[in-house]
């Protein structure tokens, strides 16, 4: 395309007569701007691009570069060099390997838990509940998003405390709560990110016409078979859209791990504990969530679900 791609109409000069009549500085600036859409665009973009393009992207690139640097073991100073040592360390040291895999496993478990809870809830809200109940539940699932992140982590810290509410609740059944650990961490993360899964699944459920379900049962399918063969395939994009949030948010989280995870270490724990002692290793570890999230997004895009976002 040879023509300039600037959209606004620059030929309209209807403003010129009145402007010429009483010309102030504002009018002069205005005239200059009006005649030059490229200048206006540059003016609009200069500051944001300096911030996001230079400062932010620059920082991400520098982070990636730092990952190839090394730390002087005596002075703890970062030494610019080129070494794959940090990455080799992540891949070969069993503790790091395990941490990376564990974190991905936790993020997947959180995603599955959210999806499993969102499906029946969405079914109830969209197809069984009265309109009033539906509206209340819709507010009910999004409301906790306003309560602070740490507040929610804290609430589960109280819940899982040994001798705390969960233990008390389970005591009559002869059970005790899981205590702080991986199970508590998965439940807490699922709690934190549940709205991101529940909302898209519920809205997708609402969009499925009732007669599809009727047709399915007319053909003899039991309700569960209908859900499995009719609803779930139609809900797939919603599940994937929700899973992007539940997965990626769980992957980067380490605060919850610190307060309800007991001794469970995640990628974030390793980054946080190395950021001052060994920045290059922290940087190398920081690339792990980026790579995993990008891979996940790529897979999601291939399935065509991103267009639903």
């Amino acid at each position: 395309m040879a023509a300039p791609t600037i959209k606004p109409d620059i030929t309209s000069d209807s403003t010129q007569a009145p402007v010429a009549a009483r010309s102030g500085t504002g009018d002069t600036i205005s005239r200059v701007l009006h005649a030059r859409p490229k200048l206006r665009l540059a003016g609009l973009l200069a500051l944001p691009l300096a911030w996001l393009g230079v400062l932010y992207i620059g920082s991400l690139i520098l982070l990636f570069v730092t990952a190839f640097w090394t730390t002087d073991t005596f002075t703890s100073k970062v030494v610019p060099a080129f070494t794959l040592e940090n990455f080799v360390e992540i891949v070969t040291v069993p503790a790091y390997q395990l941490t990376a895999l564990r974190t991905i496993g936790i993020a997947l478990a959180v995603t599955v838990l959210c999806a499993v809870l969102a499906l029946p809830l969405g079914l109830y809200m969209a197809k069984v509940a009265s309109p009033r109940m539906r509206a209340m539940l819709a507010i009910g699932i999004t409301l906790p998003l306003w309560a602070g992140y740490l507040v929610k982590v804290f609430s589960w810290r109280i819940t899982f405390m040994s001798g705390g509410p969960l233990d008390w609740l389970l005591a009559p059944f002869g059970l005790t709560g899981p205590g702080y650990g991986t199970a508590a961490l998965i439940i807490t993360l699922a709690y934190l990110w549940f709205p991101y899964m529940a909302v898209p699944v519920y809205s997708a459920f609402r969009q499925i016409p009732d007669n599809l379900f009727d047709a399915s049962s007319d053909l003899g399918a039991k309700p569960w078979a209908t859900v499995r063969t009719v609803a779930v395939p139609l809900l797939k994009p919603a599940f994937i859209a929700g899973s992007i949030f539940t997965f990626s948010l769980s992957l980067g989280d380490y605060i919850a791990a610190q307060f309800v995870g007991g001794k469970t270490q995640v990628i974030g724990t390793v980054i946080a504990s190395n950021i001052n002692l060994n920045p290059p290793l922290a940087a190398a570890f920081g690339t792990v969530p980026i790579v995993v999230v990008v891979l996940y997004l790529f897979l999601a895009r291939k399935s065509g679900a991103l267009k639903q976002l």
Partner: peptide
């Protein structure tokens, strides 16, 4: 406006919230 790299700018705005917070944090710290 229509301009070259429009989609990239769009991605650029969303990126800080799409990447885990820890990545943004570590990158800026560094």
């Amino acid at each position: 406006y229509e301009f070259f790299g429009k989609n990239t700018v769009n991605l650029l705005v969303v990126l800080p919230i799409a990447l885990p917070g820890i990545v943004t944090g570590v990158a800026l710290n560094n």
